[in-house]
């Protein structure tokens, strides 16, 4: 009986590995791209990707076929990264708190919008690949992760929330702020102008907004 068990177990494992490799290996470039921008260098990124694959493979039995393998792999990657660099997350609330101050009060100036439509302007000239990569690297870590998952990898807010382990509302505000920070970095500090008086941009959540609406607030 033990003999029988062994002869059955081996091909079973090989099939399982083949199955895993078929669904997971095509994601390697995308995972690596994410890992490079999270870790900041290719060596650490390679290690992170390897660790991700090993963890995913060990947990593959619990993976339900038909669910999104791409989202699952990215979730493991993000989790693995944060497990290694957990200490760096200290102070993220600080970054989040200070980031909100100017962004709700200032809006993109019309001049900037006009300049952006002109391909020969100095504003668009700054949007080079290298400048963009630098700006992404300069984002606070939690914003960067959300930006990379949503804007570079194209995940939905729900999938990003699941990967990062935060509410969807937090994804929404982090992504919003990440994009504003990129705009400021790439297009210059001068692109914003203060919101006009009477424009109440200080609403902090959908619920609050709805509550205010329900209470007869002005639109």
């Amino acid at each position: 009986m033990d003999q029988d068990k062994m002869s059955r177990a081996k091909p079973g494992r090989r099939d399982r590995r083949q199955e895993f490799e078929e669904v997971a290996l095509p994601l390697m470039d995308a995972l690596f791209a994410m890992a490079v921008r999270m870790t900041g260098n290719r060596d650490d990124a390679g290690d992170l990707v390897q660790e991700t694959y090993l963890k995913a493979y060990k947990a593959f039995d619990s993976f339900e076929c038909g669910t999104n393998v791409r989202a699952w792999m990215f979730k493991i990657l993000v989790n693995t990264y944060y497990n290694i660099h957990r200490h760096r997350r200290i102070g993220k609330d600080l970054a989040e708190a200070s980031g909100g101050v100017w962004m709700n009060r200032e809006v993109i100036s019309q001049e900037t919008m006009r300049a952006f439509r002109d391909p020969t302007s100095a504003v668009t000239g700054r949007m080079t690949t290298m400048e963009i990569e630098t700006a992404v690297r300069a984002l606070p870590e939690d914003y960067r992760t959300v930006f990379l998952l949503a804007d570079v990898q194209g995940f939905s807010y729900k999938e990003v929330a699941s990967s990062v382990g935060c509410p969807i509302g937090t994804v929404m505000s982090r992504l919003h702020r990440a994009r504003r920070l990129l705009q400021r970095h790439l297009l210059g500090d001068g692109i914003f102008e203060r919101a006009e008086r009477g424009e109440d941009a200080s609403v902090t959540s959908l619920e609050e907004f709805r509550a205010r609406k329900a209470g007869g607030g002005n639109t």
């Binding site: 709700n104 809006v107 949503a150 807010y157 929404m172 992504l175 919003h176 994009r179 919101a195 006009e196 009477g198 424009e199 109440d200 941009a201 200080s202 609403v203 907004f209 002005n218 639109t219």
Partner: peptide, 14 residues
């Protein structure tokens, strides 16, 4: 108002 549009513009575009 314009201020609230600022707040929701990205979620709307997405």
């Amino acid at each position: 108002n314009c201020g609230q549009v600022q707040k929701y513009i990205h979620a709307y575009l997405d």
